[in-house]
Design a protein around this nucleic acid. Structure first.
Lengths: 156, 156
DNA sequence: CAGTATCCCAAGCGATACTG
DNA sequence: CAGTATCGCTTGGGATACTG
């Protein structure tokens, strides 16, 4: 079966893109990953309008990617912050993939703002393709297999 | 230095998002990866309008992610196809990250359309965080380091 | 601080028609 | 086959004002 014949209504890329496929969401997630978690801080750092930020945060909470948490720090009054859920943490790989590509091809190497490291050793970390036995392969060795049963389930 | 103080005009995620951060581009790239490379095939398989497809393909060619190639198969007249460049191949990791997230959290497991495998052994392949020495770490060991020099370069 | 509400313009998009 | 051109509709988004 050819990919061109597959019914893509249940495609993972399409599903993920329906949430993350937006100019603002990746920037919001990036900032949350990096510790910017309050509405106003996101607002000024990202440079987005209140309406859009409100809308996108709502969407992310609705999809279980962020959790809106009310907290009270010493002496001051309560505040809200947006925390990554476990599901949200899984989007880290998407972020990293975007960052890798951006710094590899679009931003001057000497302007690279951030490095990803292994916290225990400080070594640089990149994204890679990992087999089940833990070994790493190159992108040119990657193939794909269509799951015939699922792919034809909703065909006419 | 806090991330909230970093000037993100040269951020890799932002740069990558300015190209890929769109509802159509990931679907186009997915199809091209999987062998759908002609205008009309993309049109019908993705279900996008001619204007949008034309615009996005142009953008991808302009950014050196796809190459428009004219070819002639036996006996028939010439055609065009869009091929991934080397740069485009690097976006494979973004695609895979999106697919992983989508199939993990958004699409029923029994509806998974496609598996990614190592072509030489047929083993399933997933995305992982790889240190420079080739070993793999978990997402919970990931840290980030701000590059102070670059981050403050364009600050006032 | 953390938003919601409104207004109004600009961009995106599907449908359709047309060209080499 | 591989697009470009045009047309209206719908959505997105900045600016601003307002609320608990």
């Amino acid at each position: 079966m050819k990919w061109a014949d597959v019914d893509t209504t249940h495609c993972g890329v399409a599903a993920a893109t329906s949430i993350v496929g937006d100019r603002w969401i990746p920037l919001i997630l990036r900032d949350v990953f990096f510790g910017v978690r309050r509405f106003d801080d996101l607002l000024t750092h990202i440079g987005v309008s209140t309406a859009v930020l409100s809308n996108r945060l709502g969407r992310l909470v609705e999809h279980g990617i962020l959790a809106k948490v009310r907290y009270r720090s010493e002496g001051s009054r309560h505040r809200y912050e947006y925390q990554l859920t476990e599901r949200g943490l899984d989007l880290l790989l998407v972020q990293l993939a975007l960052a890798d590509f951006g710094y590899e091809h679009l931003v001057d190497a000497d302007k690279r703002l951030v490095d990803f490291v292994d916290r225990s050793t400080g070594q640089r970390v990149r994204l890679g393709l990992v087999r089940e036995d833990g070994t790493v392969i190159g992108a040119d060795s990657l193939g794909m297999q269509i799951n015939e049963a699922a792919a034809s389930e909703h065909q006419m």
